[in-house]
Design a protein around this nucleic acid. Sequence first.
DNA 1: GGCTGGCACTCGGGCGGACAGAGTGCCAGG
DNA 2: CCTGGCACTCTGTCCGCCCGAGTGCCAGCC
Lengths: 338, 338
Amino acid sequence: MLSERRLQVLRAIVQDYVGTEEPVGSKALTERHNLGVSPATVRNDMAALEDEGFIAQPHTSAGRIPTDKGYRLFVDKLAGVKPMSAPERRAIQNFLDGAVDLDDVVARTVRLLAQLTRQVAVVQYPSLTRSTVRHVELLSLAPARVMLVLITDTGRVEQRMVDCPAPFGEASLADLRARLNSRVAGRRFSDVPRLVEDLPEGFDAEDRGTVSTVLSTLLETLVEENEERLMIGGTANLTRFGHDFPLTIRPVLEALEEQVVLLKLLGEAGDSGMTVRIGHENAYEGLNSTSVVSVGYGSGGEAVAKLGVVGPTRMDYPGTMGAVRAVARYVGQILAES
Amino acid sequence: MLSERRLQVLRAIVQDYVGTEEPVGSKALTERHNLGVSPATVRNDMAALEDEGFIAQPHTSAGRIPTDKGYRLFVDKLAGVKPMSAPERRAIQNFLDGAVDLDDVVARTVRLLAQLTRQVAVVQYPSLTRSTVRHVELLSLAPARVMLVLITDTGRVEQRMVDCPAPFGEASLADLRARLNSRVAGRRFSDVPRLVEDLPEGFDAEDRGTVSTVLSTLLETLVEENEERLMIGGTANLTRFGHDFPLTIRPVLEALEEQVVLLKLLGEAGDSGMTVRIGHENAYEGLNSTSVVSVGYGSGGEAVAKLGVVGPTRMDYPGTMGAVRAVARYVGQILAES
DNA sequence: GGCTGGCACTCGGGCGGACAGAGTGCCAGG
DNA sequence: CCTGGCACTCTGTCCGCCCGAGTGCCAGCC
């Protein structure tokens, strides 16, 4: 087990390295933090920390930098979450309050997160399957053409065009709309398949085909993979990454373009509480030199989606975690109000 | 006026520089293109081209590289648009045909363009104001709460929540819906303000306030600035930019995040035909070392929005222009079908 | 008049050596 | 267990050097 002082040395190394972006040596450490011991002692501690794999030297006779394992210990044991200041919180709230619709909420959230953390922000749209149905609307656009519109309690709206096998009268449409809504309004989307299963049975034979088509389109819309959307921003912050750009930045940009990768990344994160994935803890190897801080957000107690930031492993964890948590909280509030 | 051969020399310089990314000298030029003259002659031509400002040397005793003015001449006079091959066109069509809704069309278009040109792709959503109204739907979500849904002929769907000043009955709602649609369905959105102007007059005093509120929300949605959306992709291609990354790439990423800047950029481009803005021709200075190739697309003869790519001034103009034109054409077709 | 080969000149990039600085590991002593 | 001292190592940088690519100019040739 590591002594208290060694943990302090690790903490100091992380803090200094995050600040200066340069390997930190024993002398500089004792000068900037009053540890009450000499550089020589710190050197011994460093040697021990290196043996345990918490820090490493880029080359002999250079200072030390934290390893992924070192950051992990730092995040778990040594650092708290830095709360936002009151003015910051007010600014967050004001900024988000101006949103006119869900797209706008998400767009503003991305901007805000990117700006606060100076990193790349990722915000997932509220998941359909975890939301509840506010309303299902059916619009007749042509005799055999129906538009299906789903509206969630979080304000998300999804639409699909349905080509019907047979013409579908206004009366039948109104009938279907009414029955459909009475069954699913207020229920969770994940329950919808079960709730509408036997719906076609109540219709005339001639309409039954169309009803089935409409319902199957509805169910398709709810299939996990397709229904997830997200928005990213702050990619310009990647340029602050390090001096060895091309190699680092490229795979990150590629990962950010692959929604599938990102969704998986957010999906892996725990459902409640904040998740921090550091460097190689990320399954996707393009992100091996980045850390991902993510958290669920939602209008009620339950998370309807996740948001987070992607940045270099060398990031200000307490500050980033504080910002992510605060933003998630306010977004949840906004959604609950709408 | 430049002689025919000098133009050929310029063309050769542009082609070689685009290929190799290195200043091109007189000897290399004569070896790779059979111009039928000696390096010395080419040197004289180069000196002339430099005097006219079409090419420049990074430093004395280096080869020449084209200037913005040189690229301009190349694009205007020396290079055609390279048509896509038949298999490429088939691939484009197949890829776009799989789209399920407008979001998907736009997303696929961005991906496709980025992949074909290996540059950053930008696609604007079909503009509301240039589209025609397919349907306006009003949904009562609560006694004094209405959701307004606009559907365009291009498949774009826009929704807004309206808080009514007074409760609004189902009957009144149906009435408003019917009158609204009979006036605006099939008309251009830009005509909508004029068409609905006197609509509140037909309603009872008690409903008139609500009707006005709904209509003003409708009009707000149509205000130019707010209604424009776009999607970008292929930012990872920026890493192929040059070796002097951080300085070049950063402002470009920043510009790409500023939708306002991008929209202006696309907006400035001519309405019909392809527009190429080279280097300093771009008003936004972060894009001074990039070129923007853009073109309008639309379901009919008229453009409903624009799409294009952003890349280094040192780009393959004929190929890029060919890809942009082809993609725009197919997107237009897809929209017309939906 | 325009093209060509020849020639002297310039400049950037790469290579190698020297040097300073930062940091380490180890050891003996308090 | 901490500390000061010491020898060692490695990096980054600066300098001088040379080579090669490319140029501009000029005299001669067609």
